[in-house]
Write a protein that binds this DNA or RNA. Structure first.
Lengths: 233, 233
DNA sequence: CAAGCAAAACCTGTCTGACAGGTTGGGGGA
DNA sequence: TCCCCCAACCTGTCAGACAGGTTTTGCTTG
């Protein structure tokens, strides 16, 4: 984890700072040394330390704030989201591949959610599904409730890695969701899509993992079909 | 994707550069403007442009090289790997959660690999499994072949997102793998672990996805049991 | 003595200018 | 025509400076 970046002063500084965090077992929120102090300890200019900080901040490993010292950060999907978007924009990843991964992890998520969800989480998931139905006339709002629904399921799975991954796909999903919506031109198709979410929420609330998985699979089958209809090869 | 970073000149610059890439449809390898030019166009100092470049480079969205201009980068798991490691080191993620995710995606990967693998990929996967067996006396080498084996499977799945995810877990796996190995103290347990890999390779080579999934599930069940034995809660 | 406030000390964000190399394209010589 | 070398370009790093934002300190006041 350290020498990956070496061969440049900034790379060395990134390694040194990472090591500092690990060796002292710093936890999210803990403060790092000031730029001035680090530049003195590492025998490099403040410029180098700053660029190292920026790099770590880009990966959301640390957090920067003006006036305050840098702190250790909580994991966050922002960086991953940008990386995925970049991959799609540069034709290194296509939407179908994203959907295959989402289907794979979301069927697992919904199983775990059905087993582990608290009553509060179940209520929230039901509420978001209901909000989707109430937003049938407002695609933008509907999309946001849709995203929040899947995020809530990931949360209920009690595995932060799933939350991270679902979050990572959110950025690109925001850009492609409207396409999928347009290919469901009939009211029936749109109602079905929303109803499936409601049914998934009910299955999770009823702690019925098998039913939940079945419905989630149905949802993704339908979504992929919609994308194909849209002519996305 | 743009205004996430705003409220600071560096953030704005990151947004402007990202937009530049997207609007001009730049592909991996394409050159970006020089720091001097960008600093002139964006009306900021070269310092700001450099920090923006560093941020994008940390996410492997662009690539920097001394003397040359920055180029658009290929997706790479390096950054994600560091992020995951950070999450584990700061107790935000534990090993079991990683294993649950790996099991979920690797069972899908092995299905796809069994269906889509080329003959060359099948041969490579078999070769790596054989190398594992040949390295039974050298844990470090065995681990590397193990990692390469799973990477090759992901490759054969023909979905770069799976490769990305498997790569993301490699960093932390390198740090925890020896623990799992130590908890398989008997020769029988160790032979079984390696034999399972060989069997998976054969199932993939035989284009038998069901058998491959069954064996992969077995492998993960066994690995999780080993971790539990090691006292990892 | 305690509470509160204001100045001092500290810290980050950005700018400017400078210089040591690494890279590249083009012109001139063989 | 081919090759080599130089000039132009570009990045990596450093030093110093200053405008704000933040934290600490210590004094003042009730």
């Amino acid at each position: 984890m350290d020498q990956i970046h070496s061969a440049s002063l900034v790379g060395d500084a990134i390694g040194a700072i990472s090591r500092h965090i690990r060796e002292r077992d710093l936890m999210p929120g803990d403060k790092l040394p000031s730029e001035a102090l680090l530049s003195k300890e590492l025998n490099v200019s403040r410029t180098v330390v700053r660029e190292a900080f920026r790099s770590l901040a880009a990966m959301r490993i640390i957090e920067l704030a003006t006036g305050k010292r840098a702190t250790v950060a909580q994991i966050d999907h922002g960086a991953m989201s940008l990386m995925i978007e970049h991959g799609v924009h540069t034709d290194q990843i296509n939407i179908h591949q994203i959907y295959d991964v989402r289907r794979t992890i979301e069927t697992r998520i919904v199983t775990l959610a059905a087993i582990r969800r608290t009553d509060e989480e179940a209520a929230e998931i039901l509420r978001l599904a209901a909000q989707m139905k109430a937003s049938l006339g407002d695609p933008a709002a509907l999309m946001e409730y849709d995203l929040a629904f899947h995020t809530a399921l990931a949360q209920a799975s009690r595995n932060p890695v799933y939350s991270l991954l679902i979050g990572s796909f959110q950025g690109i999903t925001r850009q492609t969701w409207p396409m999928g919506w347009k290919t469901r031109p009939t009211q029936a198709a749109r109602d079905l899509m929303v109803q499936t979410h409601i049914d998934i929420a009910r299955a999770v609330a009823a702690s019925d993992p098998l039913k939940a998985v079945e419905l989630m699979t149905l949802h993704f089958d339908e979504s992929v079909r919609a994308l194909l209809t849209a002519g996305m090869s």
